[in-house]
Simulated assay, not measured.
Amino acid sequence: MTTTTAEHRQEYGHGDRYDRYEALTGLMELMSGDEKHGPAATSTLDALWVLYDRVLRVGPDRADDPGRDRFLLSKGHGPMAYYAVLAAKGFVPVDRLPGFGSYDSPLGHHPDRVLVPGAEIGSGSLGHGLPIAVGTALGLRAQGLHDPHVWVLVGDAELDEGSNHEAIAYAGPAGLDRLHTLVIDNSSASWARPGGIAARFEAAGWSAATVDGRDHEALYAAFTASHPGRPRVVVAQVEPKDG
């Protein structure tokens, strides 16, 4: 069952003066430093916003609720967009953003689930997020928790890692229909071919869609499309990293 934006906000209590897409650029500008990985961060911004604003059933007051959706950021380098969205949604105080990456800041160059409210995993070592998401979906199923959705955001280059081959190959036949993978495609993969990402998932039994990663309505439609009995992948194409 798809929850409308208004219902989502009412249930999970989101909303303050930063809770709007237009505020995200200013929130990101509060973070500075030599390790910003700016292109990696900005490539994820629109997809993250649509997820947290309109799709994910989670909020700062329910971060430990067993029935919450799980979002796993596997593409953990350059997390400024992630931190900005978490701040906009009330997980992280805005006044913590200027200290990004400093010695005593909880907001490191890679998110730490112990230090960052709302973060489900510590990430940054690429190739781990999707296998962890598969395990999370299996764990929820084993506990009889069939309502929560599991989302994982990965980069296109990250899919070169062999651990992802195994996760993709397993999840389809296992029928993990609560599992969703969001691939940010900024043409970074070494062995890519046009259309190859979606085709690879489809060959393993996944439901797949490729959309403009800056088009909020296209992202929302792809995120909420029905895919009974199959895991879902959405490939969000954005401008090339070096472009």
Rank of each mutant, 00 (worst) to 15 (best):
P79I: 07
H14I: 08
D65C: 00
L73D: 03
A203R: 13
D69E: 01
S32Y: 05
L176W: 07
H149R: 05
L126M: 09
A169M: 11
L176M: 11
V134W: 01
A221M: 14
D242R: 10
L30P: 09
D53H: 14
Y21H: 15
G135C: 13
G135I: 05
G229Y: 08
G33A: 01
E35V: 13
P111C: 12
A222E: 07
V92W: 05
F100C: 03
K75H: 06
A41E: 01
A81N: 11
R54Q: 14
P111G: 09
G99E: 11
E11K: 03
D64L: 06
L179G: 00
D160T: 13
D104G: 01
V154Q: 00
K89L: 14
L126G: 05
P111W: 11
E202N: 13
D185E: 14
V58E: 08
Y83K: 07
G13I: 14
D53K: 11
D104I: 03
S102M: 07
A137S: 10
R9A: 03
S188G: 12
R70Q: 04
L179Y: 08
G67M: 06
R230P: 06
L115M: 15
G76Y: 00
A218N: 02
G122Y: 08
A40K: 01
H180T: 09
T4R: 05
G155F: 02
Y52L: 04
D61T: 13
M28Y: 01
P60S: 12
Y21R: 15
